[in-house]
Design a protein around this nucleic acid. Structure first.
Length: 813
RNA sequence: GCGGAUGUGGCGGAAUUGGUAGACGCGCACGGUUCAGGUCCGUGUGGAGGUAACUCUGUGGAGGUUCGAGUCCUCUCAUCCGCACCA
């Protein structure tokens, strides 16, 4: 027997060259009208250093889906690009002096090379990088559309400031009071910044989750982040200053139990209210202390509720009671109106505060021990409401408030506007000009892109490094022509990645961001794939962009990603891979040692792709062994036999092997069609190859050839090079040009099967029976089975359950 | 605290609608091939008992529904993730 050796290092470059030379995976926007279109997209990589194992996983998943859909007849758009602006490249520049463009481009080159070496079927004609002026030109254009529509505005607000990265951060980028990127504790500063009004879309972002096919846990995370609360806005009047203070409450039914009123330390009126009262100095001290306290310090929930009186009172609109005002840091300026009505009897936090400060706790809902947050009839709430169930009382009280013009039903959201300015260099310039006489003026669209200027020093100094590029900053006002200055902030990189999936559809359009007619052909993305770590940030922002651009008439759909799949992380020794732990597995090392097909297949075989999985070097060997067995068998059969068809009336081992092949076709198809069960799909192909080996000396050459070609065809989406090579050896055809195989129903059926015989639910025997027998016959056969007879001997049969095709259960007493 | 997930052999995991628990891979044991190691080709492999046929037991724990539960229900424990004083 000739010595066939599976050599991935010879096979893989050979097929990669074919696909590159022939532009096999490119799709056109005008051709292919006879085929359904499918857009399969993995989240674009952030090009920093080398690709890691997570990249290998996400693109292995996406490529398997892309290949499967192509061979099932779809025209598949499967593009690639790079999220190329961002802090790491800039921090690297500060440390080394290397321009971020240089290091980013080097990294992109490495990603490109490895994606080709992995054999990912990418349409390279649509490749993009978000740092390319041909791309960010249109990021700026989108900014201007939002600006003109009033969805982008500049305003002063309390913002998160990272003292290390010297920039502001979006709320979503603050994790446990710390900067998502560098881990430094975040400070709160009052600064004028650019915002996108994502809160205008809160309701729609929430409602439309019901229209998309996303994992439930991702939808839940988004729902929680949006944080919709239904309740009422209730207005309390402050007599000394004649000011109305509206508050938001989810419990208007407890309004008669409001015994005090609390404002956040950041509330702009706090100092003014306390002025001239004996509490003025105490309030000043308290507010100063609260302002410098860290988020983490204030956020500790078990901390005692602190606060001081303001020396003023407000009027409760339902009973005209004067209730004292306080300032306390358990009230947040960012949520609601920055002030609350406190109902200590029915809210745990208000209860704690009342106890600590000796304030009245008045029960207004009958029920359990105080503080009691549950339902019950009202009490101490006046003759109009006492005795009513609180849910009904809530409606009536809101109606009464509305009639008196002191409140109304209201909905509040936790979601806040998206802060998009960054005082950093390596990002997309914000295309506006500040004119002393005209104010903020948009850069005219025909002057886009506003190119990122070259600077000497990238180091952040509390203002954008762009401010140092004086020739660039100083310009003229597009409106009045007088001297003006450019905006020096750059955009959050999440802006760049909130629309890249649109650009892929029409990537070479030089006159517009896209042609809406072209977009309508591909969008929305049919299958989006990425890490669950983007469940909130990227996915929420992309949805917001899509809705806003649709409202402005640029898009004809409401949701960017019709279906989403989130893959789990690859760990090593149970821990996230990191350089500091020294447990990093480099994809390149695995590819060099075993080949890309092994690396890709192993990652999909290791377990369900949506779950985290632990890397095992021994497991890789096992998958490599399997691919090697498949290829060697194909090479041997191709060399030692002539092509032949399987027998038309197979018997014995031929029949067994052909059945196995058709079973595998059905199994893999089922596992890929709508599911992402790659691990069991690969298992099925392994079983088929195992049977080829087991039966090879007993079957006809035609059957063996067919079984092995089927295995090659089925493994192709996961291991494209070895699949293509084995398939060509056996059939002379190119597997990716072949339709996906279809199982022959006649070979999926069996003429006999193993009937499970149970007594009282316990397995007692298995017998071979003919397919299609009726319940009556099956019952008789089961009762006659030797071990069944033994277990029912001398006992009374009370019932017999027959499930044709499966089992018979005899119930005895 | 709220929300979401996950618990199955020595390990990763499998189990369509409630119907043979442990597919497939790793590891391990044994046999064959090989000068030898590795490779390669087989056989076996949840635990306990038994020469064996077979029996008992077994899916984090405790109950329940059912002829039958890894799967459904109730309670509970553990681990992980997200949000966290959200009024």
């Amino acid at each position: 027997m000739p010595d066939h050796r599976y050599d991935a290092s010879e096979i893989e470059p050979r097929w990669q060259a074919v696909w590159a030379d022939e532009h096999t995976w490119e799709v056109s926007n005008d051709a292919g009208r006879d085929r359904p279109r499918s857009y399969v997209l993995e989240m674009l990589p952030y090009p920093s250093g080398e690709p890691h194992i997570g990249h290998l996983k996400v693109y292995s998943v996406g490529d398997a889906i892309a290949h499967f859909r192509r061979r099932r007849g779809a025209e598949v758009l499967h593009p690639m690009g790079y999220d190329a602006f961002g802090l790491p490249a800039e921090n690297h520049a500060i440390a080394t002096g290397v321009h971020p463009r240089v290091s980013t481009n080097a990294s992109i080159a490495s990603f490109q090379r490895q994606f080709r070496e992995w054999g990912i079927s990418i349409d390279w004609s649509r490749e993009l990088a978000t740092s390319d002026p041909r791309y960010y030109c249109w990021t700026q254009w989108i900014f201007l559309q939002l600006f003109k529509a009033g969805l982008a505005d500049r305003r002063e607000a309390a913002v998160n400031w990272c003292p290390h990265d010297q920039t502001v951060l979006a709320n979503e980028q603050v994790i446990d009071g710390r900067c998502e990127r560098c881990g430094h504790e975040v400070e709160i500063r009052q600064l004028e910044q650019w915002f996108f009004r994502i809160t205008d879309y809160a309701e729609r972002l929430l409602d439309d989750l019901d229209t998309i096919d996303w994992p439930e846990h991702v939808k839940t995370m988004q729902r929680n982040w949006i944080g919709r609360s239904e309740g009422a806005s209730v207005t309390f009047h402050q007599d000394d200053f004649d000011i109305d203070y509206p508050v938001f409450t989810t419990r208007p039914d407890t309004l008669f139990g409001a015994t005090f009123f609390v404002m956040a330390p950041e509330h702009p009126d706090v100092l003014r209210l306390a002025a001239g009262t004996p509490h003025e100095q105490a309030v000043r001290d308290y507010v100063n202390h609260a302002m410098v306290a860290s988020n983490a310090e204030r956020g500790a929930m078990d901390k005692a509720k602190t606060g001081v009186p303001l020396g003023r009172s407000v009027t409760n609109p339902v009973n005209a009671e004067q209730i004292p005002m306080f300032v306390a840091d358990y009230v947040l300026m960012e949520y609601g109106t920055g002030a609350i009505m406190a109902v200590p009897a029915h809210d745990e936090r208000d209860f704690d505060f009342a106890q600590a400060h000796g304030l009245e706790i008045r029960r207004v809902i009958d029920g359990g021990e105080l503080p009691y947050p549950g339902d019950g009839p009202l009490t101490n709430s006046g003759t109009d409401f006492d005795g009513l169930p609180n849910r009904e009382a809530r409606i009536r009280i809101v109606a009464a408030l509305e009639a008196a013009d002191r409140g109304r039903g209201a909905i509040n959201f936790r979601l806040r506007d998206w802060l998009v300015s960054r005082q950093r260099y390596w990002g997309c310039p914000i295309p506006v000009i500040h004119c002393p006489s005209c104010g903020i003026v948009a850069v005219p669209e025909d002057e886009l892109p506003v190119l990122l200027p070259e600077v000497e020093d990238y180091a952040p100094k509390g203002r954008s490094p762009l401010a140092a590029a004086e020739d660039w900053v100083n310009t003229t006002c597009p409106t009045c022509g007088r001297p003006a200055k450019r905006e020096t902030d750059t955009m959050d990189t999440f802006v760049d990645s909130s629309w890249y999936f649109l650009r892929y559809c029409d990537a070479r359009n030089e006159t517009a961001a896209w042609d809406p007619a072209v977009l309508a052909e591909w969008m929305p993305v049919d299958q989006y794939i990425g890490g669950v770590e983007h469940a909130i940030l990227h996915l929420m922002y992309a949805r917001f962009f899509t809705k806003a651009l649709a409202d402005l008439g640029h898009l004809s759909f409401q949701e960017p990603f019709a279906a989403l799949f989130t893959q789990g992380m690859i760990t090593r020794d149970g821990a996230k891979m990191s350089k500091s732990r020294g447990n990093v597995v480099s994809p390149q090392a695995i590819v060099e040692r075993y080949g890309a097909d092994t690396a890709r297949s192993y990652i999909l075989f290791i377990g369900p792709v949506e779950q985290d999985a632990d890397w095992s070097d021994d497991g890789v060997e096992g998958v490599h062994r399997f691919l090697s067995r498949l290829w060697r068998a194909a090479a041997e059969v191709a060399e030692s036999t002539e092509p032949a068809a399987p027998p038309s009336q197979p018997q014995g081992a031929d029949l067994e092997l052909l059945r196995k092949a058709h079973w595998a076709i059905a199994k893999v198809t089922h596992d890929l069609d709508g599911r992402f069960a790659f691990n069991t799909a690969i298992s099925a192909v392994i079983e088929l190859v195992n049977d080829c080996y087991r039966l090879r000396s007993q079957v006809s050459a035609g059957s063996l050839r067919f079984a092995l070609a089927s295995a090659a065809s089925l493994i192709f989406p996961f291991a494209p090079h070895v699949g293509a090579d084995a398939y060509q050896l056996l059939t002379g055809e190119r597997v990716w040009e072949e339709p996906w195989p279809v199982a022959d129903p006649a070979l999926l059926e069996r003429d006999t099967y193993e009937l499970v015989c149970q007594v009282n639910g316990k397995l007692r025997d298995r017998i071979q029976v003919a397919s299609g027998l009726g319940e009556e016959e099956l019952e008789q056969l089961a009762l006659a089975a030797p071990n069944v007879r033994e277990h029912i001997a001398g006992r009374e049969i009370t019932k017999v359950i027959v499930v044709p095709g499966k089992l018979v259960n005899v119930v005895v007493r």
